[in-house]
């Protein structure tokens, strides 16, 4: 039954066995095509397994799912260094902490250091671990080390 598959999926996720998790997510999808939890698990497991191209394909083939994969799609494009495309995807979605983090990383790679720093400063209230590292990197690269 599908509950057993989800139990197995959960176990693989807990153990960071991401390739196995993808396999079990596919088993769920073979009996329940379009299962949103299974598709989400599959996409995240592919990203965590560093299979970025496959993650993008999975996102592409899940158009009917109501979950908004924009952030994941933008992240995959960022990993492929398709920075302008990634920004385009982000601009179409509401701003969230993750999307702002990603935007700041994309801007950094694009050499837009002031914009990168602005976003990190906006996120400072959110107390995200290690955010200062990226803020300082942006400041130094912007020639604003004194700040």
């Amino acid at each position: 039954p599908i509950e057993d598959l989800f139990t197995s999926l959960n176990r693989h996720i807990q153990r960071s066995e991401f390739t196995q998790a993808v396999k079990v997510a596919n088993q769920v999808l073979s009996v329940a095509p379009g299962d949103e939890d299974a598709i989400r698990c599959k996409v995240v497991a592919l990203i965590k397994a560093d299979k970025i191209e496959e993650a993008l394909s999975a996102i592409q083939s899940s158009q009917k799912v109501s979950f908004d994969f924009s952030f994941y799609k933008a992240y995959c494009l960022y990993r492929q260094n398709k920075l302008d495309e990634a920004l385009e995807v982000l601009e179409k979605q509401d701003k969230t902490q993750p999307s702002m983090l990603l935007e700041s990383q994309i801007l950094y790679r694009l050499g837009k250091m002031d914009a990168c720093v602005d976003i990190c400063r906006n996120l400072q209230k959110a107390k995200i671990d290690s955010l200062e590292i990226n803020l300082v990197a942006g400041l130094i690269s912007a020639g604003r080390a004194s700040e």
Partner: peptide
């Protein structure tokens, strides 16, 4: 240039599937 951490990666989480088990 200084290293920038991939903090966006840490924000990518599995959905809760407790209620599916």
């Amino acid at each position: 240039n200084p290293i920038v951490l991939d903090l966006a990666y840490n924000a990518i989480d599995f959905p809760s599937i407790e209620n599916r088990m």
